[in-house]
Amino acid sequence: MSGLLALLDDVAAIAKVAAASVDDVMGQAVKASSKAAGAVIDDAAVTPKYVHGFSANRELPIVWKIARGSLFNKLVLLLPVALLLSVFAPWAISPLLMLGGAYLCFEGAEKVWHALNPADHSAEELYKEKLSATHLEQKKVKGAIKTDFILSAEIMTIILSAIPGELSLWTTAVVLAAAGVLITVGVYGAVGLIVKADDAGLAMAQRGRLAATRALGRAIVRNMPGFMTLLVLVGTAAMIWVGGSIIVHGLHDLGWHWPYDSIHHVAEGAAHAAPATLSGSVGWVVTAALDGVIGLLLGFVLIPVVVYGITPLARLFNRGG
């Protein structure tokens, strides 16, 4: 009997250690995921456009297909690469992070440029009309998963850079996987709610038993277009801010301290000039704004590089292949 009690005691101790390990892994996953907030917000802001124009009964299936592709991107394609980098080339994480930051700056600046210079999309709309609904859905899903791959690569790299170096390879893998799943569920769960919000509002407006319910439904339907516009604006601002911040910190890590030190000096001065209760917030806002200015300028520089350099080369390579 005493042996059995000792065994049960050992099992309980092991269970406590395991529970503590799970708590630690989830804590690290949540903490690391928060570092990727800008890319995550952009992911959530970009995805709803891929279900635009489809019937209501196809919206959630399309979101589910994109979510599955996102999980495949993160867990099957990107997770092994991230682990290999952490073991064999940790020095490459910062440059890769900067490359992803430059991409975020480019994407954000391109959205700003298109907003300032709206193009004629009639040819694109005519092309879409000629596609069957099934073919168009497949094309949209494929394009969304490709876009997600780039954003997921940035997210996973940011998460990897935020994981403490003293963790074991196994724990790092579990944290990366947990953070990847957490972000994917959060993003595409939110996207599912967003794309169905107008349908829910319409149902409430038409079939609500209470006047307040019907009024709320009408308000949801009426305000969803504005909310979607706001979401896109927030996503674009987040891309530019996070991209600029990654570039500034990356340059600082590589030895060019002037941009980081200058922004820090200006933010510190603004924080000291503000009331004590607002100094922290003012310092953060000024830092984010200046990071965003750098990100936007870099993005504008990259637009012609991508349009006239990288894109033609990629097309030439694809044609040759």
Score class of each variant (00 low, 15 high):
F227N: 03
A200V: 15
R207Q: 13
D198P: 04
T229N: 11
R222Y: 03
A211S: 15
R209M: 09
V191D: 00
A205V: 05
G217K: 00
T229Q: 09
R207L: 13
M204F: 10
T229I: 10
L210A: 12
G208T: 13
L193G: 15
D198R: 15
A203H: 10
L202M: 08
D198E: 13
M204T: 09
L202S: 07
I220T: 12
F227L: 15
M224V: 15
A200I: 15
L202D: 08
A205R: 06
R209A: 10
G217A: 03
D198I: 11
D199A: 15
D198F: 02
R218F: 00
D199T: 15
V221R: 07
V221S: 05
R207D: 14
A200N: 07
N223Q: 07
M224T: 14
A200M: 12
L216W: 00
R222P: 00
R218L: 04
F227G: 07
V221W: 00
G192R: 06
P225A: 01
P225C: 03
K196R: 14
A200K: 05
A197R: 04
G226L: 12
L210Q: 12
M228Y: 14
L193N: 08
I194F: 10
R218T: 01
A219P: 01
L202H: 06
A219G: 04
A215V: 05
F227M: 14
L193W: 10
D199P: 05
T213R: 02
L202T: 10
D198M: 08
G217N: 01
A205E: 12
G208E: 12
G226Y: 13
A203F: 10
A211E: 14
I220V: 15
A205L: 03
A219C: 04
R222V: 00
A211F: 11
D198K: 14
D198T: 15
M204Y: 01
Q206A: 11
I194S: 04
F227Q: 09
M228H: 12
A203P: 01
R218Q: 08
V191G: 03
P225H: 02
P225G: 04
M228N: 12
I194R: 04
L216G: 00
I220H: 02
R222D: 02
P225I: 04
A211W: 13
G226E: 07
L193E: 02
T213V: 13
G226N: 11
K196H: 11
I220C: 07
G217L: 08
G208N: 09
G217I: 12
V191R: 02
V221G: 00
A203K: 09
I194K: 05
A212W: 10
A200E: 09
L210T: 15
A215I: 05
F227T: 12
G208H: 08
A211M: 14
L193M: 13
A200P: 06
M228S: 04
K196S: 13
I220R: 01
M228V: 11
F227A: 14
R214T: 05
N223P: 01
V221P: 04
Q206W: 08
A205N: 05
N223V: 03
R214S: 02
R222L: 05
L210F: 13
R218D: 03
Q206C: 08
A219W: 06
M224G: 04
A197M: 13
V191P: 07
M224H: 03
A197V: 11
